[in-house]
Design a protein around this nucleic acid. Sequence first.
DNA 1: CTGTTAGCGCTTTCAT
DNA 2: ATGAAAGCGCTAACAG
Lengths: 338, 338
Amino acid sequence: MSVTLKTVAKKSGYSVTTVSRALNGHSDVNVETRQKIEQVARELHYYPNRVAQQLVTKKANVIGLYSLDRETFKNQFIALMISGMMDEATRHDFNLLLFTTQRLQTAQDLINQCTHRGLGGAVISGLRIDEPLLDDLVGMDFPTVLIDVPLQGPRATYVSVDNVLGASQAIDHLAGLGHRQIGFVNGHGAAWVSQERHEGYQRGMQQNGLSPQPGYVFEGDFSKESGRRGAERLLKSHPELTAIFAASDLMAAGVLEQLQLMGLDVPRDISVVGFDDQDLCTHVTPSLTTIRQDMYTFGRVAAQELIAMVNDADYMPQHVDLPSVLVPRASSGPRRTV
Amino acid sequence: MSVTLKTVAKKSGYSVTTVSRALNGHSDVNVETRQKIEQVARELHYYPNRVAQQLVTKKANVIGLYSLDRETFKNQFIALMISGMMDEATRHDFNLLLFTTQRLQTAQDLINQCTHRGLGGAVISGLRIDEPLLDDLVGMDFPTVLIDVPLQGPRATYVSVDNVLGASQAIDHLAGLGHRQIGFVNGHGAAWVSQERHEGYQRGMQQNGLSPQPGYVFEGDFSKESGRRGAERLLKSHPELTAIFAASDLMAAGVLEQLQLMGLDVPRDISVVGFDDQDLCTHVTPSLTTIRQDMYTFGRVAAQELIAMVNDADYMPQHVDLPSVLVPRASSGPRRTV
DNA sequence: CTGTTAGCGCTTTCAT
DNA sequence: ATGAAAGCGCTAACAG
């Protein structure tokens, strides 16, 4: 049937053990022997059975990705992250398994599910801040990397940008253009990044000598529709606003749409800044100024940390704050001089 | 260490064999015995070791996705497809493994790589029409489902929309609006869909009594930039055009941008229709009329066919033509009456 | 340097 | 209805 170590052993005249060692590059094999064996293996199109390998070594060259928030699957966010993870996994000869579980039960169940499938560790994205499982995860002896949720432990870490900084960069940019009344359309509170960006908004305002009024803040849910509602609501109650910062590009696109519907010109009448730097920034009119976070690198770094943990039980995982950078485009401009 | 069948056997007082059968729902186990065993298993938080299971049964409840064209990873296309595959896989208790291999060697190597990793079958997306491996794939005894590449065999099939029809729908729509000079910005020729959509364009023109001039066709590469170039080139040589059909939304977005740059009003001066119905259709201004294909369903159907093949060696895979539907939006309108 | 032996965790004849 | 034994394909001591 399929060609196994035994087949190669028989054909080459060596024992299974020797063949195994030869093929795995152990040093205690005669050079000629190795060459002969490799030759035979090639002729036979031998591929090691990873399943059997895994069973005995208990080394799982597989990492998993739990993408909990199905909605994010619709945007580039997750696709780029997967792409980054795949690249990094390939580099280390790891495979990437995708999980669809919408809701994670207990940490222990998660870990069982993983280990018994031969997973060495998992990246978890889209976890809500109020998830009880979160606390349990720290103590467990199973490598995890969270995306955009703060968690640090001997076998757990997270990757994100400094969202406080990112948001304040947006405010700095707007303040630098002369804006003083700046509204904020935030994502929903169950996301850690929302809390952080909110703080960044406040801090940014204060740093620029502006007073962040509570009424300037609208809590959306990262959807485009909520961006529209946010813009409408904010401007209705605070017509003095000359700029709006949205916590995601998609919401910013909604803001843009609503403003134009209301007959306002962006950026002449009012400026808009988003967050993420997805492709849609260049599709909308005017093109969207935003705070860029590189999701591809998120994926790479997450996979990198995870694989390091899987490969070395003593590896101390590092939290990585990726850079957030302002990308100025056409949607932000100097404050309208009344 | 971890809890295995043996652990459950010991604790329950039965043999490993019986425990295995009980847990796998075999009928030759006393009801009480089963209940006791299940009870113990639950207490112990027992999870079967899938790796060991796989090794012995050789049944791999894992399907793979080869996404060959890294570029498509950046758009929703692949993300939605993965989402659909994940849902379908979960329904059947299958897992989804992602492969990053950019280039596939021979069909045999592909199959070896898969089977030795415990893959039951694979979905392949982004395969070029000139790939030599394509022909070999038909004869192999390894379940494959291709995306947008025609291939039919006892263990292989493909899913796509009827691209000829889809493209002709676009032309019908434009012709119905009175357009007679319709340009076509196509994707690169290495994609099967390009050939099909080109034919659909031609057929659509003929069906509407219009003569498709070769000069009305521009070959792009699915990128936004190529859409811009296409629009520029076509209009420079054929200013009589009153409509442009692009073989992807992204290219259509480029077309839109270029037209506006040239001072043309869409749809008053010229109409634009895209293909895919990605989110960007509603982000651009004016919103983009397009031919919708549901990538989520692509994924579901692909996984479904694949899993059917994996589970049943006699299953005759079906080619599935998903519907393509015209989604009218603001970028297409009646022909300008000169 | 090479081979023998054991065993990873599970399923599956084959007895009982 | 239950258990003993063999083996999936591989690696890892341990001898020699």
